[in-house]
Design a protein around this nucleic acid. Structure first.
Lengths: 122, 122
DNA sequence: TATTTATATCCCTTTATCACGATATAGTGA
DNA sequence: TCACTATATCGTGATAAAGGGATATAAATA
């Protein structure tokens, strides 16, 4: 349906959301980890994740007190599957994407408990 | 580059522009023909065509007094080529797209000179 | 040259989107 | 139960996009 396609298309028409998708290609991440990498407020990150989830591109896994987001694997329609595959093939040498991945490597070295508290006090 | 991808993505994040692209899959069309099919004002159609052209998805051919738009063939980057191919594979059974193609068949039966005058007086 | 025609551009109004702070919710641990 | 934490949602102001009328431009024609 055209409306579904537009919804999907709008979901990826935002720099922050593309950055999130590219980050999630590496591994699942929680909101506070993304806050740290993207240097954005909690409500902003959460809303972007909501839009991506609503478009069916990502899914959540609740673990302890954190919500871990990852790229959708199952139950995806044709558009979404093709799109994620396409996305994974592009932008891998983009400077901003590379910078984000650099920051991702920092993040996964830190204890998530400490990181999220740091994130909260900035 | 991420910015280019976002620009492309925004270009296809609008129902009217996707309808235009799907119409141009059939054949090249001028502004007044699109006005008739889409039932939209001249400035609106022209602006959408400008956005698609700016994103590199379509190109113009001036013939007589008309500007005929068609899908880009050459000089396209990877994103655009892949995207147009993807677009051609989807939405072909969407009701609105089918309705547009129905209307397209009407349009190409008419003399373009008469059609464009009709379009102007509505 | 003056006029008509097709299209592009400008301007305005309405609507959508983004980012953020504040608040709500839901689960954890004391 | 009460405080704490991670996330979601609400409200708001700023910016961007959509649609359309009015105007500008450029080519064709009288």
């Amino acid at each position: 349906m055209l409306r579904d396609f537009i919804k999907l298309s709008k979901a990826i028409s935002d720099e922050t959301r593309v950055r999130i998708l590219k980050l999630l290609e590496n591994q699942e991440l929680c909101v506070c980890q993304l806050m740290f990498i993207l240097e954005m407020g909690q409500s902003t990150v959460s809303k972007h994740l909501g839009i991506l989830k609503n478009a069916g591109l990502i899914e959540v896994r609740k673990d302890w007190t954190w919500s871990f987001y990852k790229l959708s694997k199952e139950g995806m329609n044709t558009y979404n599957r093709k799109l994620l595959k396409f996305l994974s093939s592009i932008l891998n040498d983009d400077s901003l994407i590379l910078k984000d991945e650099e920051r991702l490597r920092e993040v996964i070295k830190k204890d998530i408990k400490i990181l999220c508290n740091i994130g909260k006090r900035t």
